[in-house]
Simulated assay, not measured.
Amino acid sequence: MSPIRLSDLAFTLEAVIDDAFGQKAMWVIAETSDIKNYPDRGYCFLTLIERESGTTSGGTLAKLEACIWRRNYHTIREFESATGVAFARNIQLLLLVSVGYSPVYGLRLEILQIDPSYTLGNLERERQAVLDALVQDHPELIWLEAGQYITANQLLPRPAVMQRLALITAPGSDGWRDFRHELAQNPFRYDFVVDEYLTQVQGKGAERAICAQLERIRLSEIPYDAVVIVRGGGSQLDFGSFDTYLMGQTVAGFGIPILAGIGHERNVSIADMLCHESVKTPTKAAAFLIEHNRQFEESCLLLRDRLGLVARDALQTAREHLDAETERMRFVLHNFFRDRHTDLAEKAVTLRHLDPANVLRRGYALLLRNGHILTQAGNVQTGETLQVQLHDGIVTVKT
C-alpha cells in the first residue's frame, strides 16, 4: 500500500466524522477532569472521562477532550446557579455535546448544555442512600417518623441557657470570624464561654477531622450546653464532608446538642438534617444562641412582672381583708363594751338597792351583838343586851 500524507488522513477523518456527527447533538454522561477555565475570555477546556465503576476510583473506560466556547459559556454560570455546585473536576454530568474534528487540534467535543437536574438528582440519590443505610444500621440513633428523620441528638433536652459552647471550625476562617463577631457584639451583653476545636471543615479528610474533634469533646467530659459547627459559604461539593455516613452516624448519636451553621443557602446536608438544630450561616448560628438566651431572659422578666402583680394583688386583698376584720372587730368590741356597760349599770343599781344603808332607810333594822349581826332568833338569849341599828342611829335593848 502506498503511503499517504498525514493531512490526507486527517482530512479523511474530518470528513467521516463530519458525515457521521456533523450538525448533530447528543446527550452523554461523563465525569469532568483536567479543567482549564478562562472566565475572563469566556471559554473552557476540559477532559471528559468514564470510569469502570462510575466512581473516581475505577479504571478509565473512555477519555475525550472537550471545550465550551464563548457562545455557550453561560451554561457554566447557569449550572452553578441552579445546583449550587461549582463547575469543577470529578463531577458526573449530563451534557449535550456535538462532535468535531480538526486536522490540527484533533477530536474534540463541544459542550452545548449542562443539565442541572441530573446533578441534583445524583446528589439527592447519594444522600438518600446514606440516610437509608443509617436508618437500617442504627435504628436506635435515627429513624423515620411521619416522613421526618428523628435522631437521638434532636431529642436531647435543650438547656434553658446556652452559654458554654464547644466550637468546631477552621482556624481564621470567615465562618469562625463571623460567628465570634456576632456572639461578641450581641446587643444584650450576654457572656459566652467558647472553647475552640479548630480543624479543617472541607476537602479530603475533613469528615474524619470533624468527627475526631467531636470525639475530643466527648472525652473531655466538659458539660457543654451545645456544640456548634460552623463554616463559611462555598459550593455544594465543598460540603461533601457533611453528607457522609460517618458524619451522619456521629452527629445523630452525639450526647450534646449540635448546632450546625455551615454556610449554604441552597441545599440541606445530612448533618443539617440529623443535628439538634440547623441554621444557614455561622452568623445565624450565633444569632440563634443569642435569641435562645433572650427568650429565657424574657420569660424570667415575664415571671418577675407576674410575681409583682400577684404580690400586689395579694397585698391588696390582705389589706382589704384586714380592714374588714378591723371594722368587724371594732363593731364587736363596741357592742361588747356597750353590753358590759349596761350590765355594770344594772349591777350598780342592784348593789345600791342592796346597800344596808339604803335597806335601813326603807325601815329595816339590824340586830347586833357587840357589833356582829345576828341572823337567827335562836342565837338570842333572854336578858342579854343587844344593839339595834336603825337608819339614823343605834338603840340598845335588853331581851
Rank of each mutant, 00 (worst) to 15 (best):
Q389N: 03
G233H: 05
I394C: 08
L315W: 08
A260W: 07
E298R: 14
E291M: 04
P116N: 01
T342H: 13
T281Q: 04
Q295R: 09
H138D: 05
T47G: 08
V161D: 03
V161C: 10
A152S: 14
S33R: 01
R369K: 12
D174F: 14
A166W: 04
A66G: 03
A20C: 06
H341C: 15
A314N: 06
R306D: 15
V130H: 06
A206Q: 05
E182G: 00
G233P: 05
F242C: 10
M247R: 08
L214A: 09
A324R: 08
P171Y: 01
D115M: 01
Q200E: 09
A82F: 10
I76P: 08
N267S: 08
E196F: 05
E265F: 07
G100T: 04
D137N: 02
Q236Y: 11
V99L: 08
C44E: 03
Q213M: 14
Y38D: 05
T342G: 13
S98H: 06
D272R: 09
G255R: 02
A226S: 05
S2E: 15
R51V: 00
R108D: 11
R127T: 11
E297C: 04
N358K: 10
L167F: 10
L198M: 12
V279M: 10
I49P: 05
E327S: 13
A62Q: 13
Y224Q: 09
V135L: 06
A166Y: 02
L167H: 06
T350D: 07
V279S: 00
A66C: 09
A365P: 00
T32I: 06
F296Q: 01
E110W: 07
G383A: 03
L155K: 06
Q154R: 08
L123A: 00
Y101R: 03
G363A: 07
K280V: 03
I49D: 04
G383M: 11
R127W: 09
Q381I: 12
R340I: 13
A129Y: 08
V193I: 15
Q249W: 14
I168W: 07
H353V: 00
D272F: 09
A365C: 02
A166C: 07
T83C: 09
G106I: 05
V28R: 03
L246I: 14
L165M: 06
R70Q: 09
H321I: 15
V268W: 11
R180V: 15
L302T: 15
L333S: 00
A318C: 10
N72E: 12
D305F: 10
T83M: 03
